[in-house]
Structures are given as C-alpha cells and as structure tokens.
C-alpha cells in the first residue's frame, strides 16, 4: 500500500510540474510582450475605422429605422436586454453617439470610458444590423478588438517598451481572426455537410451577387469546386496564422489574397475583419508621413506657446 503511494507521488508531482509549465507557457503566449506602440497604433486604426464604417461601409444599418417594426426580429440578446424596436430617430442617435465616442476615443483622454462606450454602441449597431433576418460573421474580430482595447492603459505613443496588457489585447484580436476562419470551416461541415466541398455554393453566390469578373466563371463548375476546396483548406489552416515566421506570414498574405478574390468576384468586402488582420503586423514600425508629423509638431509648439503666454507669472511679465 505504502509502496503504491510512494510510486504514485513522483508521477503526481511530474503531472503538476507539467501542468504548471503548460499554464506558464500559455500565460506567456496570451500576454506577448509586443511593443506598447503597436497596441497604440492598432487602437488608432480601429477607432478611425469605426468612423469610416459607420459613415460608409455599414451606413445601410441606418435604413432599418425606416422599415416597418414587424420586420424587426430581435436576436436573443435584444430580447433579454430588452432593446427597443429601431426607429429613424433612435438609429440617428446611436450613429451620432458612435461617431462622437470614436472621435473621443482617438484622443488620449479617458481611453477606457470612451472605449467602452464605442464597444457598447457598436454592439447595438450590429444587433440592429442583424435583427432583420440575416446574421453575418465578418465582425466578430472587430467586436473583440473593441472589447479588448479599452483594457490597454495608454502610455506614450513612442514607447516601444514591451507591454503585456497591449499584447493581450492584440493576441485576443489575432485569436478572434483565426476563430472566424476556423469556425467558418466548422459551420460549413455542420450546416452544409461534407458535400459542401463538391456542391454549388459558389455558383449560388455568383448568381446572387456576382461581379463582371465572376460571371464568366459560372461556366466552369470544376474551377469553382476547386475554389471551394481551397477556401476550406485555408480556413482549416488559419491557426498557423499564429505561428511566427515564414508560415504565419505566408498565411497572412494568403488571407489578403483570399479577401481580394472574394471582393473582386462577390463584392463581399470583409473590411472590419481585414482591419483586425492588421493585428498580425508590426504596426509600431508605421510612421506617419513627415508632413503630418511636422504639422502636428507645429500645432503643438503653437499651443504650448499660447499656454505659456496665458500662464506667465506677473514677476516675469
């Protein structure tokens, strides 16, 4: 009996050690020490994009307010909360608030408060968008980005020190991007079955929203079936996006090529998702063009001078 326990002890210890090491490794992986500037640059891109998105790419959400209320089919989250039936006024207010909150989030004041405001408003904007009979999956990563970015404490823009809080936020976005692809492959298996691969889903897509580039392809079903195999292969390989080095980079460019192809043939832009793909890039190396930096510096010098003049002490005057 005692022997059995004696034998079991080292095994249990080994198991605990292995578990501790695995947890430690996972901890390090989830909190990569990316330069702080990378998170700051990504944050700027995301909030600037929300403004562009609300005005240009998802402006059609605003149309929903004009629709008869009966067409509003609230999602589970909309029924639980419960969110009101959209009206032109309510959507106008959400849109304006989203624009203001994103603009304020771009300034460096109260990043957490404005970041949370943008997340909540954008989530509602999307709930409205998806409550009329169709739910898209191209905004999952952006929603994760908007949820994670307010947790990043803002230091100096030029701070290239490793920042684990920023690293965590960026890692979350990267994982969300990968999940978007990988779980899309799973959804094809779940809803379409293995026959999806040899089916005519791309023919359907082209007949519904094909561009002049795509229309001639409809006469070549084997080509489209080949494309379907490639799509699923890419989606299944997407976890390799998280691998450092050549493999990760190749897959990243494959992702951009895939979306360029999809846009050219089906006018499906996936722009919110593309913005999140930028989380894989060393954004800290992006420097604004000198002209912008010069204008900014001139503006700051002028502002500082004005401040000094206004607060000049009487004995110096």
């Amino acid at each position: 009996m005692a022997r059995a326990i004696g034998r079991a002890e080292p095994n249990a210890q080994q198991f605990v050690t292995v578990l501790q090491r695995a947890t430690g490794g996972l901890g390090k992986w989830w909190y990569p020490r990316f330069p702080h500037r990378r998170a700051v640059m990504f944050r700027r891109i995301v909030y600037a994009f929300v403004i562009v998105d609300v005005l240009l790419t998802s402006f059609a959400v605003g149309w929903h307010g004009e629709l008869p209320g009966e067409l509003y089919q609230p999602l589970l989250i909309g029924r639980i909360l419960p969110l009101p039936v959209p009206t032109p006024l309510s959507l106008y207010v959400i849109k304006a608030a989203l624009l203001v909150a994103s603009a304020l989030a771009l300034t460096r004041r109260m990043p957490r408060l404005y970041g949370i405001a943008v997340f909540v408003l954008y989530l509602e904007w999307m709930i409205v968008n998806f409550s009329y009979g169709k739910v898209d999956h191209d905004r999952f990563a952006l929603l994760i980005a908007l949820a994670a970015l307010p947790t990043v404490p803002l230091g100096d823009l030029h701070d290239e020190d490793p920042d684990e809080a920023g690293g965590w936020a960026l890692r979350c976005v990267q994982v969300a991007v990968v999940l978007t692809y990988f779980l899309a492959a799973y959804a094809k298996l779940r809803f379409g079955g293995i026959e999806w691969l040899n089916g005519s889903t791309l023919v359907r897509a082209i007949l519904r929203r094909g561009t002049s580039v795509a229309d001639p392809l409809i006469g070549y079903p084997p080509l489209l079936i080949g494309a379907q195999y490639l799509i699923v292969a890419f989606e299944l390989a997407s976890p390799f996006l998280l691998v450092k080095g050549r493999m990760g980079r190749a897959l990243l460019w494959a992702a951009f090529a895939f979306h360029a192809g999809v846009y050219a043939t089906l006018r499906l832009s996936f722009i919110p998702h593309l913005v999140c793909l930028l989380a894989f890039f060393p954004l800290e190396r992006v420097r604004p063009p000198p002209s912008i930096t010069k204008v900014g510096a001139r503006f700051r010098t002028a502002a500082a001078q004005k401040h000094r003049t206004a607060h000049r002490s009487p004995d110096r005057a």
């Binding site: 989530l123 998806f130 999956h137 899309a184 799973y186 889903t201 023919v203």
Partner: peptide
Amino acid sequence: GSVWGDDDDFPFAPFRMYSTTTSPSGSV
C-alpha cells in the same frame, strides 16, 4: 455557439455565411 448555437445567439452565433450546400442539380 458554433457547436450548438444558431444565428439567434449573436454575438456567439455560428460563423455560417455561405455555409449551406446548394446541390449541383438544385436551384438558386
């Protein structure tokens, strides 16, 4: 959401754009 959920569960809905199969002898 991907394994058991449906569109209704957004933001944890399955990632199902273009996930259904159109049969090559079906209709669009």
